[in-house]
Structure formats: C-alpha cells, structure tokens
Design a protein around this nucleic acid. Structure first.
Length: 511
RNA sequence: GGCCCCAUCGUCUAGGGGACUAGGCCGCCGGCCUCUCACGCCGGAAACACGGGUUCGAAUCCCGUUGGGGCUACCA
C-alpha cells in the first residue's frame, strides 16, 4: 500500500536515522513485539541507521531483571542485534528507564516552572468517582481539572508539608496532528485528552513523559511502535511542543490477531518467541514470516526472503494498515523452505533438543553419535517442518515397540492379509547371517523373499515395513535399514535395534 | 458512552480510475510420482462487506451503514 509521504523527508539527509525498540521486561517476548522489533531493525538496516534497545522498567512491581536477560537473549537469537542500548552501551545512556530518574526530574522541574505542568492532590478514589460521573454524563472520562488552577505557591507549600501529589501536564486547547508513516495524517482534539500525569506521587515518571524525555535524549528520529500507541502520540506531541523540541516521525503498526480475529494471546497456542525456538524453528524463518505479516516486497510470488533481501527492501510505505492474522501453518511452510537446503550438520542444533526431550539422545553426544544423527536428519529431511516435527518422524527409528504397534487396526489388517507373515519369514531367512546388513543386502533379501513367495510390490514391501518399524508408513525402507544398522552399536541411552532384531521381535509376536 | 483506526479468496497479500475475465503465497480439493506417509511437480475451487454518490468508466475517489480493532489509568 504505497503512500506519498515516504520515510525519507529532506531532513534525513543531514539527520541520522535512529530508531528504538523499548519493551517492558514483564514477560517473554511476544510475536507482536517481535515484529515491532524486527520492523525497527529492518528500517535501521535499510536506512543505514542506528537501532537502540531501551528497557522501560518504570513499573517496578511487574518488571524483573530475568525477563530483561531473556529478552536480550531472544533478540540476539533472532539476529536482531542492537547497536546501542542495554548490555552494549552507547553515548546516550543509561538505557534502562529506572536509571534515568534524574533526567526525568530535571525536565519535570522545567515544565513546572514554565507552567506547563502543575501539582494535583486529588486522591485516586476522588479521581475514580469523578471519572464515573463524567462517563455517566456522556463526557470524555479524562481528568476534570480540579487542581488545574491551584496557586503554585500554595501547592508547593502543601508538597513541602508532605501531602502526596502527582505532576500533571496542562493540555492546551485546539488540536494536534501529525503524519503517520503508515496511517497517514491523523488529527486529535485536545478536549479529548485531559491533563495527564507526568510524575506519580512516588516521583516515578509516567509512561508518556519518560518516553518523550528518552526519545529526545537518545536522539530518536523515527518512533516505530504498536498501534495501541497512536492515542498516546498526541500527548507526546504536546510534550515535545512544551519542551520546545521537534518531535520525531511516527509509524504505527497494526495489531497481530489470532485465527479467531481477536488479539493474539496465549489461548491461540504458541505466541512467545521462546516457544518457537524450542519447537525448532529457524530464526531466519521467523524473521521472514514476521516481515511478511503486514508488509510485502515489490514483485509477485516472493515469499521466501533472506535477511539480506529484507534489509535491502524493507519499506515503511508498504506496511499494511489492517490487523493481520498470525498463521502458524504458513510459518511452518516458511520454516521448511529455509531448512530445506541446509546441510544436516547445521540442522542438528535445531533438532537435537527435541530428540533429547524424548530421552533418545543424551547430553553432549559424542562425535560418532552426532554424525549418525546427521544421517538421521538427512534421511528424514522430508519431514523437516521444524526440529520438533523431525524428532516426531524419528519415532520409526527410536521408538520401536511392536507389542504396542501391532495392536493398531491398520497394522493388524496388513499382517492378517494373505501371505504377509509368510513374506516376513521369507525375508528373515533371506537376510542371512552376516553381522552388518548393508542396504544392498537388504535389497537382495527383499528380492529373494519376493521370488520365494511370489509376492510383489505393495504386498511385498508393506509387511516388511511393519516388521522393521511397526508402522504402515514412514521414510524409504532403505533409509530405515541404514539408520537401524548404523545406529545399533552407538552409545545412546537406548540404542535403536538392528534389522535382524526388529524382525525377530515382530515374528515372536506373530502366529 | 466518547475519540481514533481498519475492511480484496478461509489466511497473508498484489492493486495508486481503463492494463481486472481481480494476480501470487499458505491452506483446501484433484491428479502425477511412489512399497507407505510425506516431499516434489501439475491442475482446480475460492474474494473486492453492504448502500449511496462522483465519473464516459470505480476494487481503486467521497459519504453513510455494518462489522472488526485500539484508546479512554498514579500500566506500558
């Protein structure tokens, strides 16, 4: 959806592009926030700008440092390294709001002195009562202005005496407008706004105030954030105005929805970045899919894009305004495309955790085991939608339990068909007595069994497949043989049985 | 309640008044391949929310309706 106002107005030629991602450390990184971070990062890379990571932890009750650490780890895992901010430093720090209180206090003092702000002594209960009244009368529920015209000297005296007070911003009359880089021109009537809080009674800064002081202090040129903030923008614009500073450009991003059209939340399944990492999704795939959720490159049929292509082409003017529905099925498809041509050795870290969770592989597998696992991945490649999906497909190798599988109706049906058991016996006999069964030996044995029983094609392979895996479907039998034989002597928690062992165990259960 | 935003196949989207018989990806359905499930390849069904304008001509511009979302805090 291209628009006239691009993101490169004249002044960017002499003013450098600086963007920021400013999460609150109150939980795991959510895909909606990840996309915001990604768009900021892509915009910075495309424009040759700086990507800043700032932590908004003014809500002391909900903020935890472990969430901050996790957040940084998640961002790095995704490959969204920040140029400036927490953990890496920079010349406009500190980058944690809890460490910037002196800065907020200084600006608050200035605003108070110039009359842009005033003390308010209203109690929360009083405020709540007035709000309910105004709402009932059909008025905007904003602050009624009770303390607006208190004498400043009198107010200062009450504060000195220890009376709790907040600092409120005196909203002017008229309207505020701005050109949003994705939504276009937006205008707000100041009567809708109401005098908002700058500083709480405990002295901590309120969100809108802290953001403006920080964005100014960090020389942010473009604020790219969630749509929920468009209604905060006029408040912030008013603050820039009072502070006598030019505001940055704004770009708001629509919300990400779940399949039912409601805002994406836990009940829709996986929503945190960590969950996708644990399921064995590649960071490149997440980046690719999330970039496409609300944005599209120029040209048709371009779905699989590398990080480099995205950096080269990302463009705020093509960002969609409507909310987008998160579709894990498509993410899976994108993931498969990114994994498809990757060497098995690179895939191992993605698959290994899922294998370990199932208890099939121990911690720190030794070299021979790793090499075998690589051949496993190679053999099961077609099932590689994610590390988790591949591990599930590996059941045919690790989870051989004929006692259980032979009870399945579909398996029984095959085994009860004419000549099935006879075919398996003939196959067992044809395997011969050598220690290790190679694929050629296996092929020969199938052939011999076929000749002996007169069975061919499906009727020949199907019983043998069941004898080897306990299941009616799975990867090519050659592959299964290869894996079972090469894996049987390996130092695994419970090494997979070899071909002969499998056939024996199945036959033992058969009449 | 008030204010703001949004609206193309089930989903993500292309679309800038005539190139639209509305294109592409995912998913779905069918076929091919094949010892099986899958992978892959080929084909198919599937949308401009509705009503009014403006115009020679509207998916595209305007107004309204409906539907969805956001905000309306001493949260961020």
């Amino acid at each position: 959806m291209p628009r006239e106002e691009g993101e490169s107005p004249g002044y960017t030629f002499f003013m450098s592009v600086r963007v920021r991602f400013a999460p609150s450390p109150t939980g795991r990184l959510h895909v909606g926030n990840v996309r915001t971070a990604l768009y900021n990062w892509l915009f910075a890379r495309r424009q040759g700008g700086t990507f800043v990571l700032r932590i908004e932890d003014t809500d002391a009750a909900r903020s935890e440092s472990r969430f901050e650490e996790q957040l940084c780890r998640d961002l790095r895992w995704l490959g969204l390294q920040w140029d400036e901010g927490v953990e890496v430093g920079g010349e406009f720090g500190p980058y944690r709001q809890s460490e910037r209180y002196p800065l907020y206090r200084e600006q608050a003092r200035g605003l108070l002195q110039q009359g842009h702000a005033y003390r308010c002594f209203c109690s929360p209960e009083e405020l709540e009562r007035v709000r309910a009244e105004r709402l009932a009368a059909g008025h905007p529920p904003g602050y009624a202005g009770t303390c607006r015209d208190l004498d400043p000297g009198e107010a200062a005296r009450r504060v000195k005496q220890g009376e709790p007070a907040v600092l409120r911003f005196r909203v002017r009359e008229g309207a505020v407008s701005f050109d949003d880089l994705v939504f276009g021109r937006l205008e707000f009537d100041c009567r809708q706004i109401g005098d908002f809080v700058l500083q709480r009674s405990d002295g901590s800064p309120q969100y809108n105030f802290a953001v403006v002081v920080d964005d100014l202090g960090m020389r942010i040129s473009h604020v790219i954030r969630g749509e929920g903030h468009v209604s905060n923008t006029p408040r912030q614009l008013l603050l820039y105005e009072a502070l006598g500073e030019p505001p940055p450009r704004f770009a708001h991003l629509s919300t990400i929805l779940g399949p039912d059209g409601a805002k994406l939340s836990k009940r829709h399944g996986s929503t945190s970045l960590g969950e996708f990492r644990e399921q064995g999704f590649a960071p490149e795939a997440l980046v690719n899919y999330l970039a496409l959720l609300g944005w599209s490159p120029e040209g048709e049929g371009r779905e699989i894009l590398s990080r480099e292509e995205l950096c080269r082409e990302f463009d705020l003017s093509r960002v969609h305004r409507a909310p987008a529905v998160f579709d894990q099925t498509k993410l899976t498809w994108v993931n498969r495309n990114h994994l498809r041509d990757r060497p098995a050795a690179e895939l191992l870290p993605l698959v290994l955790p899922a294998l370990q969770r199932r208890g099939w592989v121990g911690e720190d597998p030794p070299g021979p085991v790793s090499r075998w696992l690589e051949s496993l991945i190679e053999a099961l490649r077609k099932y590689l939608e994610s590390g988790e999906a591949l591990a599930q497909a590996a059941e045919v190798v690790f989870d051989f339990r004929p006692e259980r599988d032979l009870e399945q109706p579909e398996t029984r049906e095959v085994l009860e068909s004419d000549g099935a058991v006879r075919t398996i016996r003939a196959f067992q006999k044809a395997l011969g007595g050598q220690d290790r069964i190679e694929v050629v030996d296996f092929k020969q044995a199938v052939k011999t069994a076929g000749k002996e029983t007169g069975v061919r094609g499906r009727d020949l392979y199907h019983p043998i497949r069941i004898a080897l895996t306990g299941r009616g479907s799975g990867p090519e039998l050659d592959r299964v043989v290869e894996l079972a034989e090469s894996g049987r002597g390996l130092p695994l928690p419970s090494p997979p049985p070899g071909v002969r062992q499998r056939v024996e165990r199945v036959l033992a259960l058969l009449p």
